[in-house]
Design a protein around this nucleic acid. Structure first.
Length: 295
DNA sequence: CCTAGAACCTGCGAGC
DNA sequence: TGCTCGCAGGTTCTAG
């Protein structure tokens, strides 16, 4: 489940159902699901057994679980990193319930709770891996995602630095929103939603944004993400679910994404869809005027 | 250094 | 019915 609100829904589920439990056994059913763990599937499994899982953390669309050997006193220095890609799910399922068709990794725990953690992923763009954490980082940030920017719901996100970075870039606003090293957690849906709310066209050069416009954009990004979070995330089908397999309902509140030919909720003009970067951009041709240079 | 585009996968629905 | 095509919420690698 791709974007920040959906990943956060999963993070909180892991926090509730997996945090504090000790790994008894790991089964990798598809090696591609752990390809970011360079030492291989066997090593991934062996390294986890007998380790206790700490509080679930998230940055943008990445989430991780710190792990420590049983009885350790020092702060954890390794973490299980998870990315859901386009179609990944982390499910907490009753032991013995039938395997999902695209079950890739199973984690069993050494306790009396009769549930296990499953990574299910149709397209295998996502995956799990084990990494060292950045020394001194209070949340145990895995070193391999140190280059990922903080997300807009992170209290330490620097609005001013974001604006400065936008002004320096020679690119367009939607590309910038999807660049996880500039701002993380925003994907194709919430980019379109935030741009619609801000009345910005996706092809606006980032260098043309004024400080107030950037502030407005950030406000709308935060608003739409918080609203989606309250609704349990966005899902059009059973691919995007929380750890209990339940879908959120924010798709009913989308103003731009997926609304081609439907009336703009602000001005009534028919919404448009444009092919864009091997995907789609949805926008209102009246509220979101293209920039002169590219019009 | 930066930016744009293709590649990586599987499944679904539309159209022929 | 069955085929092909386009499309899907992301990241990463390559070419320029």
């Amino acid at each position: 489940m791709p974007e920040l609100p959906e990943v956060e829904v999963v993070r909180s589920g892991l926090e509730r159902w997996v945090c504090g439990r000790t790994v008894a056994d790991v089964e990798v059913l598809h090696p591609r699901a752990v390809r970011r763990h360079l030492a291989g599937p066997g090593d991934f499994a062996a390294q986890l057994v007998g380790h206790r899982v700490g509080p679930a953390r998230r940055r943008g669309k990445y989430l991780w679980l710190p792990v420590e050997p049983l009885g350790a006193s020092a702060a954890p220095d390794r973490a299980i990193l998870a990315h859901l890609g386009m179609s990944g799910q982390l499910l907490v399922q009753p032991q013995g319930s039938p395997d999902e068709k695209h079950l890739r990794v199973r984690v069993r725990f050494a306790d009396a709770q009769a549930t296990e953690l499953r990574f299910v992923d149709q397209r295998t763009f996502g995956g799990l891996s084990l990494h060292e954490t950045v020394p001194g980082d209070p949340d145990g940030l895995p070193d391999v995602i140190a280059h990922i920017a903080r997300d807009p719901l992170d209290p330490a996100f620097d609005d001013e630095a974001f604006h400065t970075a936008l002004r320096r870039r020679r690119t367009t606003i939607k590309r910038a929103l999807l660049d996880q090293s500039l701002i993380s957690g925003v994907g194709n849906i919430y980019a379109d939603e935030a741009l619609w709310r801000t009345r910005l066209h996706y092809d606006r050069p980032t260098a043309s944004l004024t400080r107030p416009r950037t502030a407005e954009l950030l406000l709308h990004i935060r608003e739409v993400m918080n609203e989606a979070l309250a609704a349990g995330g966005t899902s059009f089908d059973s691919l995007y679910v929380n750890v209990n397999g339940e879908s959120g309902y924010f798709d009913r509140s989308l103003d731009a994404y997926g609304r081609e030919d439907e009336p703009c909720r602000r001005c009534g003009t028919a919404m448009r869809r444009r092919p864009w970067m091997n995907r789609s951009s949805y926008f209102c041709p009246r509220c979101q005027r293209p920039p002169r240079a590219t019009a």
